[in-house]
């Protein structure tokens, strides 16, 4: 190897600018970054625009009454979204009620009470539960959960609470309640994992202050820790609610798929997403197709609003604690 040392100053370097090749590479790089980012933004804008465009015929034909008309009749070409909105809202409400309680409780246990040797495997399992594909949930719901509820739990509830309209009527196994519970299982991991992180993020000084005032750990959690993480936990629940609202395949498999509004939670129902899933490839008229696309548009707008609110809630909590989200 040559050890002849060049004088540093003899190296050819242009004094002011990059070589043409480097300047081009740098330019291409910057353009690439901006182009990719623009592509992403255009995709989202395109998503919205295409849904509006596709549902235009239906938007014009039915106007806002699409939202509260309960007739869904492909033969007469009359379409209204109310039964699906009802099914979606009720099944998601059941889901978030159950998943909210179970998920937050699990989060409290994992973040505050469980020793690491217990918390770690449980957290791991709960996170893996979130990864189970919805078609597998649907399969399990159809062949295990629905028969079990239909033969055991639903009759039991009806025997004691059957006087309430919500628990009256025929029992089929599949229906609103089954769908709601299955959705609850699917969104529990979302609530539990996010709420656990948010609870852990509550500053320790708050806990210590409460303990030093003579509160027990449980009282500290209930009166100090949970309230200070409240905005974020609500955000986590709203996020999970968003997932339940849009879940398609699992709901389709257990909700019964009947476009009727019934007071009973045991009755079959239909959701926005499952009617799209079932009828889209069979839609014969262009108005029918357009009406289905409008259901998709409603779903998109709802999920956009719900998720937007969830993010803002969680950001506001982390911000208020002086953290970068």
């Amino acid at each position: 190897m040559s050890l002849e040392l060049d004088s540093p100053r003899t190296v050819e370097v242009s004094q002011r600018g990059l070589t043409a090749r480097q300047a081009i590479a740098d330019r291409v790089f910057r353009i690439g970054l901006v182009a990719a980012t623009l592509t992403f933004v255009i995709l989202i804008a395109g998503l919205f625009a295409e849904l509006v465009h596709g549902s235009w015929e239906s938007l014009v034909a039915f106007g806002p009454k699409f939202l509260w008309s309960s007739e869904w009749n492909p033969v007469t070409n009359h379409f209204g979204a109310l039964p699906f909105i009802y099914g979606t809202v009720v099944s998601s409400a059941i889901a978030i009620l159950v998943a909210g309680v179970v998920g937050i409780a699990a989060a409290v246990f994992l973040a505050e009470f469980a020793p690491p040797a217990v918390a770690r495997p449980i957290s791991f399992f709960i996170e893996l539960l979130a990864a189970v594909p919805s078609v597998v949930f649907g399969l399990w719901g159809l062949f295990v959960l629905a028969p079990f509820l239909g033969s055991t739990v639903d009759p039991f509830i009806q025997r004691y609470l059957g006087f309430l309209p919500m628990f009256s009527g025929g029992i089929y196994g599949i229906g609103l309640l089954t769908a709601g519970l299955l959705l609850a299982l699917m969104i529990v991991p979302t609530v539990a994992a996010i709420a656990r992180d948010l609870i852990q993020a509550v500053p320790n000084e708050l806990r210590e202050a409460s303990i030093s005032l003579g509160a027990t750990r449980w009282e500290t959690v209930v009166h100090v820790v949970l309230p200070s993480a409240r905005a974020g936990i609500v955000g986590a629940c709203v996020l999970a609610l968003g997932r339940a609202l849009g879940e398609t395949i699992a709901a389709t498999m257990v909700i019964g798929n009947r476009p009727a509004i019934s007071a009973s939670l045991f009755a079959p129902s239909y959701t926005l997403s499952s009617v799209i899933a079932n009828e889209f490839t069979e839609a014969t008229s262009s108005l029918y197709l357009s009406a289905l696309l409008e259901l998709g548009l409603i779903l998109f707008v709802i999920s956009f609003i719900v998720n937007g609110c969830a993010r803002i809630l969680m950001w506001s909590m982390l911000r208020s604690q002086g953290r970068r989200p």
């Binding site: 998503l47 465009h53 997932r243 998709g296 779903l299 998109f300």
Partner: peptide, 22 residues
Amino acid sequence: IRFLAEVLSGVPSIAIGLFAYT
């Protein structure tokens, strides 16, 4: 853009399927 990415992650897959269809 970050906000859009977060919100897009919550958009139901079936709505995205409709987009791909159109």
